[in-house]
Write a protein that binds this DNA or RNA. Structure first.
Lengths: 119, 119
DNA sequence: CCTCATACTTACATTTTTGTTAGTACTTAA
DNA sequence: TTAAGTACTAACAAAAATGTAAGTATGAGG
């Protein structure tokens, strides 16, 4: 939980409200969200499929990030009334609207990584 | 300073090396870099000009972020041998190559903020 | 000699993010 | 009755990011 009154939070809030770029980055940034979003671009995935794909992630982090993405309206959580449980995650319309953007971010990064490894 | 051996750092390193999107975000993310980059898109700026533009930033944070952007090859630091000192910051070619991308991030965020304020 | 202006440093404190470990609930099948 | 499978929670700990406050160097101008 954020401490509503810290300078840190006040700065973040003020910036996110006025700077579109900062706002966007705060939705897709962090250690694991890029990976989650990239996988979901390929279609709906189960909790366990995401967990296996994201090597190194802990259950806690995965749930935390999924909940944030859901709260921000980028993904949908689909629960099946089955035992053992089955839950799938999928990009919302809003999430899909980022596809081009996410791919551009990825492309720029890949080019840069390639350049670095050749230098 | 990062602790080379922490799981945290190992995760970050592994991800940044394989995921282009994560790599890109690690260069332009953080509290102040979006603001710095956006202003520099408009042209070369002095240290003090940046400081005044970025309401709420501390000297420490400004210097820290500028140094990182420089190390990552996105901006250039130009020092004039004058007293009082004069230092200007400017996007590199690599920095400029992000213009479209930065604008897209900004545009997407602005649209979203507008939608939120009308809802 | 003293102050001003600029672009920083440094030491420290706080807040936020990320990671670790152990546990839960629920049914089915052995 | 006991284990197996799935998708989680909760309490705690470590690490990283951010913020605060004070100080530094330089030469010009009064």
């Amino acid at each position: 939980m954020r401490k509503q009154s810290s300078t840190n939070t006040r700065n973040k809030t003020a910036i996110d409200a006025h700077c579109g770029m900062a706002h966007t980055l705060s939705l897709i940034g962090g250690r694991w969200k890029p990976g989650i979003l990239m996988r979901l671009l390929g279609g709906r995935l189960r909790y366990n499929e995401l967990r296996k794909a994201l090597v190194g992630i802990s259950e806690r982090m995965l749930v935390l990030q999924l909940r944030e993405l859901e709260k921000d309206g980028l993904i949908t959580r689909i629960v099946y009334a089955e035992v053992p449980p089955r839950v799938e995650y999928e990009l919302t319309k809003d999430g899909h609207s980022m596809q081009k953007l996410l791919e551009s971010l990825s492309d720029w990064g890949v080019k840069r990584l390639n350049r670095a490894s050749n230098a």
